[in-house]
Design a binder for these strands. Structure first.
Lengths: 199, 199
DNA sequence: GTCTATATATGGATAGAC
DNA sequence: GTCTATCCATATATAGAC
């Protein structure tokens, strides 16, 4: 979840509070007043720590995305058969999305609204390493398949079940178990294992 | 793309202009002034056609989503082997997402920000029918797999390649062809065919 | 570094003439 | 049904005391 505050400075408290606010309402949906109120300070005090709202938002993103990369790439790069690594990666990635909905929502928002500079920053500092690991795994799983596209498919297969959770409630065939991380992970693992089994 | 304006009333022109604005900037990111300017009228005139901004947004959504459902469910329900229906559905669904980015972006925004009432509305009026068709196809493809989850996976597999397009540019292994609808469709069809082949 | 007070812009929405 | 003019709330951001 949130990074353990080392000294709990005001700056850290602001970021800690801002992350869930931006995750649930977006940049335009959160006012400096709202953040200040949630922290328990006056709006003007925010400007002692960040020059403007954009900077506060960027720092909140970096805060939310910190150390996410490592957990993902470790499992994908761990030793073992491609099949075993696939299963560990899907389990870990699914757990991460379930544990930290703020991270997932901020990511979705960046995909929708991020300008080129922000997306390049996120890509290089957060996703480049784990995506490389997933691509390498993809190549081991199916050398004939484009590893870039297979890596995207593997991640999307997991993410979309979380993304659609709020609307699946109203669609036919919905059962509560389908929101469970372990059920999602098993479904995705079964699908990918069958698709990528060496024949 | 956009529905052919039958009489091009002012109300229709407003919706036609509002859809891409809301799709690219979201509800909070578009002002009534911006919409009015784009239409070429005064902000106050918008209130002759819609009681408030919320109503304008809801009407714009309905306008953007109109008739999308039919095209999807037709291909999924069309006659033929499950395999052939799968291929036609993936082709059609991929083409739809490529043709109408506004629809896709509005959908993503609703998944992020839609309240319960809006999501129920969208689910029942837009997705219930085509989702049922996709679920039925899923059941025919793999009777042992949860059709609801498989239907979500099938849609997500296509959508995620579009969603991630702006960030994939900065990730390793990217090639321009991977943004092409036909390449995405082929990739997804190959993956699903192998995963769901009756053994 | 936090506060109070405020400058200034922009937002949604209304009144009333035409 | 569209316009001009305006109200009023809220937004980001700054100035200056403490």
């Amino acid at each position: 979840m949130s990074i353990p505050a080392p000294s709990s400075t005001t700056k850290d408290r602001i970021l800690e509070v801002a992350v869930p606010l931006f995750a649930s309402a977006g940049f335009d949906g959160v006012s400096m007043r709202a953040i200040a109120t949630a922290v328990g300070i006056q709006p003007a005090s925010l400007y002692n720590h960040f020059p403007d709202k954009q900077a506060l938002y960027l720092n909140a993103m970096a805060y939310a995305f910190a150390d996410k990369a490592r957990g993902i790439s470790e499992t994908a790069r761990a030793p073992g058969s491609p099949e075993a690594r696939l299963h560990r990666f899907i389990d870990r990635f699914t757990a991460l999305m379930a544990e930290d909905p703020d991270f997932r929502r901020l990511l979705q928002r960046e995909l929708l609204d991020g300008d080129e500079n922000r997306l390049r920053l996120v890509a290089q500092q957060v996703f480049r390493e784990p995506f490389g690991a997933i691509s390498a795994l993809a190549q081991d799983l199916d050398p004939e398949c484009d590893p870039h596209m297979l890596a995207i498919s593997m991640a999307g297969l997991v993410l979309f079940h979380f993304e659609t959770a709020p609307v699946r409630r109203f669609l036919p065939g919905m059962r509560v178990e389908q929101d469970s991380p372990s059920v999602i992970a098993e479904h995705v693992k079964r699908l990918l294992s069958r698709a990528l089994a060496r024949v």
